[in-house]
Nucleic acid binder design. Structure first.
Lengths: 139, 139, 139, 139
DNA sequence: TTTT
DNA sequence: TTTT
């Protein structure tokens, strides 16, 4: 059981790339405002890295931009790789299964489904079946 | 909106500490098994760092140990601090609002509530009202 | 563990009432659009009844209206009572712990915390400590 | 956005049926203990109806029984039909996308994915693509 | 640095 | 009894 739901705004425009096998992957950071204030009475935010695969990746890249109010439904993923300085780098990010565009009049959503092979299927998802090379991911 | 629900097992015994003002804080890592297998047909896990505050921190330290099946309901928090090598360190972790012990017969739960001041309350929570010094946190 | 997160639109203006002891309670129905289409290629919705207590109830009544895009974080509650025709009526609804207004520029949120006694506290919540008489609830 | 996560115990053995087109569907009720107590100091539960489709339906029927500790990840669905007394009946239930068996040593999970047609796929899901006749559902 |  |  690993479930995450977030609503926040993109800190920058989304970043669409392709894996060596041509699978689209979009990354962006969501700023999610906290519901409480800190000692100084300020409302802070958490900055959460999001990864979206396949058709949803292309939709996110097309419809989202810096500042877009966005809902994300997905799961937390951890991975690690060797940094350029030789030390191990640990990454925690959210793999989106669904991205909802909340700024538009019709708040259109994109759903993906897990481990999909048949890609002419309308709701495509997750792409854990695809090799994720660390350097394909911009985070 | 920032919501996380996890079920997994502790990778080690939990670690209970106290802030300078005496607030209990427990940390542990949850291994959450994935529902799908990788290229080699193996089932992998995500390793997610959890922070629990106040009464729930003490309960978690008392009732959980390495391997305990545990449910966590909380939110993702990001923070950063200057590492000993001078580079900025970015941390993503889950602040638990509720921890449920799933191994025991009665799967007893602990609920905390946010920004609580009155601590003789049975379900105490979150402690964002408390100064969190980075070096109080073991992650 | 009982967690619900929804984003949808109010089907009507919210309904604010008070319990006999003067506790505010607001109810409304959220239309949550599905991510998939039915046999006829239409996109349907689920219509989910929401209950909000205390300070958040008053905020919801002030800031929300028919059509407002709204996020809800809460839990599923079931209860039953004897209907006027003598048969038992079973109700399933969502008790909101947090309501987020997604239409406004600052998408202001309201957080409540559970079983709160001290009510001059900024984030008040849930009111399970309060007697809920069935006929105080409009559903 | 419509997400539900529950952990609870089956109130009875699960009920496996098949739609006219042969699609397996299992239903059961989860008793989810509340984290707080009522006026009398008792800990109550919510009783939530769950619907599981396809492969997960068969797995749930095989592995779960009355009392099984079970995690459910899914979405709230509302529907209505004409009751035998001529009045409209309104139903709120949770359609499970994933069911996790928490009693077993390996807490095996079952994942489904949405709107799947190709059923030799390992993680099959949701079956909203399938006609749901109201009288196929025991609730 | 990882659990069953 | 349903929203955009």
């Amino acid at each position: 059981m690993n479930r995450v739901v977030l609503v926040g705004r993109l800190t920058k425009d989304p970043d669409l790339r392709y894996t060596p096998n041509g699978v689209p992957v979009t990354t962006f950071t969501l700023a999610v405002n906290r519901t409480f204030t800190n000692q100084q009475g300020e409302r802070e935010a958490d900055f959460i890295n999001i990864v979206v695969w396949r058709k949803s990746a292309e939709n996110a890249a097309n419809y989202l931009k810096k500042g877009s109010l966005t809902g994300v439904d997905g799961r937390i993923q951890t991975r690690n790789y060797d940094g350029q300085d030789g030390k191990r780098v640990y990454v925690t990010e959210v793999v989106a299964e669904s991205v909802q565009f909340l700024d538009t009049k019709k708040e259109q959503g994109n759903y993906q489904t897990t481990n999909q092979t048949n890609s002419d299927y309308p709701f495509v998802n997750d792409a854990q079946s695809v090799d994720i090379k660390d350097d394909d991911l911009p985070f």
